[in-house]
Simulated assay, not measured.
Amino acid sequence: MTVRALIRNPNTGQRRWFAFPLYFGKLVEIGFSGDFNDTVEILEVDGTSLFQEGCCRLNELEELNQIAER
């Protein structure tokens, strides 16, 4: 299953499409420090309806990794 999400950094306004499963270190491309408590904004998700759009903590993206690996 191909899953991707448009993720926005609410602190910088930078956003980009990322494919899942995602190595979270790639999020530095939109200005994240790599802290799992950082908040991300999921603007759009393609490939699954099991993950909702909206704000979540970086560590909650692990659920999207698990969905992509099924």
Rank of each mutant, 00 (worst) to 15 (best):
T2Y: 13
R4H: 13
A5F: 08
L6Y: 15
L6W: 15
L6I: 11
L6T: 09
I7G: 05
R8L: 15
N9V: 08
N11G: 13
G13N: 04
R15Q: 15
R15H: 15
R15P: 03
A19L: 13
F20K: 11
P21S: 03
L22F: 09
F24Q: 01
G25A: 07
G25H: 01
V28L: 00
V28P: 00
E29I: 00
I30Q: 03
G31S: 12
F32M: 11
S33R: 13
G34P: 04
G34T: 02
G34R: 01
N37L: 05
D38H: 06
T39E: 13
V40A: 13
E41T: 05
E41V: 01
E41L: 14
L43T: 04
L43F: 02
L43S: 02
E44M: 06
D46P: 01
D46V: 14
T48D: 07
S49D: 14
L50P: 00
L50H: 03
F51P: 05
G54I: 03
C56I: 01
C56A: 13
L58Q: 07
E60C: 05
L61R: 08
E62K: 12
E62R: 12
L64S: 09
L64W: 10
N65Y: 08
N65T: 06
N65S: 07
N65D: 12
I67T: 08
A68M: 09
E69V: 08
